Each structure stands twice: as C-alpha cells, then as structure tokens.
Amino acid sequence: MQLILDRRLGPGSPLPTEAELMEDLGVSRNSVREALKALQALDIVEIRHGYGTYVGQASLTPLVDGLTFRTLARHDDDTGALAEILQVREVLEEGLVRRIAETVTEAELDALEAVVARMEAAVGAERPFPELDREFHELLYASLGNALVPQLLGAFWTVFRRVAGARGWTDDPAPELTVHRHRDIVTALRARDAEAAQQAMAHHFRGIEARTLTR
C-alpha cells in the first residue's frame, strides 16, 4: 500500500512485476503474493490473470460484504442489526438534506419530481420500485459534488436490500405512503425549508424502521 502511495499510482495504473516487488520490498515471492491477495480482497489492487496487476478502485465493496455478513450472522436479531444500519444512514441523510436545501437547483428538483412521478406510476401498476427509491436518494445529493456520499449511502442501501432479500422481506406494505414521504422531501426542498426537509427525511426513515421491526 505504501509503495502505491509513494509512487502516486492511480486506479488502473500497472503495478511492478512480482520480481520487481520482491526486489523493491526485500521480501519473498510468497510474501508478495499473499500481500497482493489481501489487497485484492480490499479492492486496492486488481489482478488480471495473464495481463498483470493493477491499482484497484478502492471501492466500498469490502465494506458491503462485511456488513452483509455481520447482519446475516446475527441469526437471533436480524431486525436489530438492520436497525443499526438504518440508524447510521438516517443520521447521514438527515444532516445532508439540510445542506441540499441550500444547494439544490430547480432542474435537480424537477428530476426528483420525475422520479416520484415514476414511483406513483409503479404503485398504480402494482409494481415494486426499490430501484426508483435508490435513484431518488442518489439524485438528492448530486448538487453536493461529493463523490463519497453516493458510494457510502449506496453501500448501506445494498446491505439492506441483500439482507431483506435473504430474509424474504421484499414487499413494501405501504407503497403509497412511501411515495408520499418522498414527495414531502421534494416539497420542503422547493420551499428552501431545511428544517422541514430534515423532518420529512426523519419521517421517511421512521416508516422504514417500522416496517423492519414488524417483520
């Protein structure tokens, strides 16, 4: 890891060969291979068999996998583990939505309205809309220009969906209410009311938590 940092190698950059790493680091071939395997698991390096080893994207995939396992491993308390994940996501989003009230543009609000309209159409057609829900939250924070925000929130989203799917909790018992709560968020943002936007987000998460705890 330090070699990658010292040489300022970016994602996709080729790493030295095994022989070069052995010489540069003063270690055995087995040590180099074990280190590369460990870094591959963390998405810090990417091993392309037959082509070489490259700097990875350092994505949050290891975090997602670890949190999913941690939650599913708590066989006696699935809902408690999911509630913890939701609580962390809720704290992040309630804080972020206050900033959005100051930065979101009318065009971005129109895009959010369009997603809510598609949610309503899905309800009318009796179709689930989890991906629209995710799209809404990703669009919501676009104006922040913070690349880590969608990655982090996406990680929590993916864990929640994986666990819910594994436990058969795929249906939203109140889709109309879910749509309404998303629209409340947009309405508050259009009014540039940060307090109301935060409250709308809190109500949204209260609904998700209530659904989880009744499973």
Rank of each mutant, 00 (worst) to 15 (best):
Q2D: 14
I4P: 03
S13Q: 03
T17W: 01
E18Q: 11
L21M: 10
L21D: 04
L25V: 04
L25S: 00
V27D: 14
V32P: 05
L36D: 03
K37Q: 13
A38M: 05
A38P: 01
L39E: 13
Q40I: 03
L42W: 03
V45Y: 09
V45D: 08
R48S: 05
R48A: 08
R48L: 09
H49R: 15
Y51V: 15
Y54F: 15
Y54A: 04
G56Q: 14
Q57N: 15
A58T: 13
A58Q: 13
S59V: 06
T61Q: 15
L63E: 11
D65G: 01
L67R: 04
T68Y: 01
T68G: 03
T68A: 02
R70C: 10
T71S: 12
L72V: 07
D76A: 13
D77W: 12
G80S: 01
A81Q: 01
I85P: 05
I85Q: 13
L86G: 12
Q87F: 10
Q87E: 15
E90C: 04
E93V: 02
E94Y: 00
G95Q: 08
G95I: 05
L96T: 07
V97P: 04
I100W: 05
I100S: 07
A101V: 10
T103D: 14
A107Y: 00
L109G: 03
D110W: 11
E113N: 10
V115F: 00
V116G: 07
A122H: 06
R127Q: 14
P128K: 00
F136S: 04
F136Y: 11
E138D: 15
E138T: 09
L139S: 04
L140C: 06
S143V: 06
S143K: 01
G145A: 04
N146Q: 01
A147C: 02
V149Y: 06
Q151I: 06
Q151P: 02
L153M: 12
F156I: 11
F156P: 07
W157S: 10
F160T: 14
A166R: 02
W169K: 15
W169G: 15
T170R: 14
D171T: 13
A174L: 09
I185A: 00
I185R: 00
I185E: 07
L189M: 08
A191Q: 11
D193T: 02
A197Q: 09
A197N: 10
Q198P: 06
Q199L: 14
A200L: 03
M201R: 02
M201K: 08
A202Y: 10
A202P: 00
H204S: 04
F205E: 02
R206S: 12
